[in-house]
């Protein structure tokens, strides 16, 4: 398209908005290296806030919780979501509106409603039956619930992009149902499964609201820890841990994107 004042204006606006989008994150990263304890000016480069993280037991516990929650929930969601994605694909000729509606439910529900309904449910179950008291387990349950749809949709879209005769070729070439799963389905799905796992992991690390309401007192995750730290008063330490989280999530998300792309290409 020709360059006109209009398109030049658009371009300027674009860069302004990119600055808007990255400024808050950039400031966090910048101040995480600030030698002064200030959010107003940058005094000089220092790693002191990162050093301080290492000595913070609460924070290291939160890190452990975050990783345990992310990995455990992603693994469970991967298994359950893959099964749903496969079922949806195999039976796509049927009327599955109810299933699609059910799968979209966790996606469309506002996370605060999601979180408090789980919390109310878990607390009541604990009080009445002594099960499902708020703990790491209830957090895992809640995370799996919102991860399942994303895994299912990734797996489903991978299947849809596949030549349907491949399934028949595997049957035709003497593969039993178990062999078909092992030698055809799993290898074909592998990139998508990796993508789905990392997406689920990203979602888990990114979540605050649902974790916040389903966690027991001992189960603070990094976002919950940061939340509490902010409420107690802003400290440059938060910048350091936030920077590490931004980095982790960016890496996991890029892995997810790359594998999802590879899954679709082949």
């Amino acid at each position: 398209m020709k360059r006109t004042p209009f398109t030049r204006g658009l371009s300027v606006f674009w860069w302004l908005m990119i600055a808007f989008l990255y400024l808050p994150l950039g400031v966090i990263v910048l101040y995480s290296f600030n030698s002064a304890n200030s959010a107003a000016f940058f005094a000089g480069f220092s790693l002191r806030w990162y050093e301080r993280l290492l000595g913070n037991d609460q924070l290291l516990t939160a890190l452990g919780n975050t990783l345990a929650l992310g990995v455990a929930s992603s693994v469970i969601a991967l298994v359950i979501g893959t099964l749903i994605g496969y079922g949806m694909y195999r039976h796509r000729g049927r009327k599955l509106g109810w299933l699609v509606a059910l799968i979209y439910l966790p996606i469309v529900m506002p996370d605060i409603v999601f979180g408090i309904s789980e919390m109310a449910f878990f607390i009541t179950m604990d009080r009445e039956f002594g099960i499902l008291g708020p703990s790491l387990a209830t957090m895992i349950i809640a995370h799996v619930t919102f991860q399942i749809p994303f895994v299912a949709l990734i797996v489903y879209s991978r299947f849809v992009g596949l030549d349907p005769t491949l399934f028949e070729a595997a049957k035709d070439l003497y593969a039993s149902p178990a062999q078909r799963a092992r030698h055809f389905l799993l290898p074909t799905l592998k990139p998508s499964l990796i993508a789905a796992f990392f997406l689920a992991f990203t979602l888990s690390i990114d979540d605050f609201v649902i974790s916040f309401f389903t966690a027991g007192p001992e189960n603070a995750t990094l976002p919950i820890y940061i939340w509490g730290a902010i409420r107690r008063g802003v400290s440059p330490e938060i910048n350091a841990i936030a920077t590490l989280m931004i980095l982790t999530v960016a890496i996991a998300a890029v892995i997810s994107l790359l594998f999802n792309k590879e899954g679709r290409r082949s």
Binding site: D163, T165, L166, E168, A170, D172, Q179, P187, K190
Partner: peptide
């Protein structure tokens, strides 16, 4: 079942396993 028959097929789309 197809995997228990001594019959093989060359499919129109060839159906070669991409992986």
């Amino acid at each position: 079942a197809p995997h228990l028959r001594s019959v093989n097929t060359v499919f129109q789309s060839y159906a070669l396993f991409p992986h």
